[in-house]
Amino acid sequence: MMRYIRLHRIFIAQYLKRLMEYKVDFMLGAIGLLIAQGMQLIFLGIIFSAIPALKGWQFEEVLFIYGFSLVPKTIDHLFTDNLWMVGYRIIRKGEFDKYLTRPINTLYHVIAENFCVDAFGELLTCILLLAYSIPKLSIPFHWYTIPLFLIVSIFATLIYTSLKIMTSAISFWTKASGHITHMLYMTNDFGKYPVTIYNKAVQALITYVIPFAFTAYFPATYFLTGKNPLFCLGGTVIAGTVLFLLAIFVWNRGLRAYESAGS
């Protein structure tokens, strides 16, 4: 375990060095990102000011849920972005060979190799939304609220990451699966809004099948109301754990099916 943490530090340091090397690229990326996030904030402002109350949800509550949804998404984005490459390129081109010839866990190795500083843009939006909405809401606050928030964020992140691991691992059989990951990611937008605004089918889908509702709506409503902790938080913990175990299983089966590439 300690060894993996140490390795992670080294990978991050190397990543930052690489980043510095491509200064122009980095600057352009950062500027582009700020513009994109700014646009998104303006867009949200327009939508929410047009519909001040959404099916009984207050404007600030909707913002809180949206902001909350960005916490796991940002963490996942920051640390596990390389999984996209697994589905798009690494397996199809046979570049996965090198991970299999090194004495560390393959999943850890691919994930640790890259970071995505782009995620800091999302983080900024996330902080702005939470900082704006929390003071206007009467959120019940206890000594355990913050630790609970941190724990639940980890499991919510695990939901994102596990789904990404599973869909990327499909390419061990099909050679490419980036588009599947992409399709799945489109549905995560559903999780950013109160699920009660959707019809029953969509609600069931994002609660029990692809449990994005547990990455934001359910835990966020617990923090808003203090009600139903067992379902709202327990559901997130269970969904995160089950999906992660499943993801590891699929990944390991995938390794056996890996066919490399001709040359």
């Binding site: 060979d97 299999l100 010839t101 056996r256 099916a257 890996y258 066919e259 490399s260």
Partner: peptide, 9 residues
């Protein structure tokens, strides 16, 4: 070689 090195099963 890939089988010997554990890349392919």
């Amino acid at each position: 070689i890939k089988m010997l090195t554990g890349i392919l099963t």
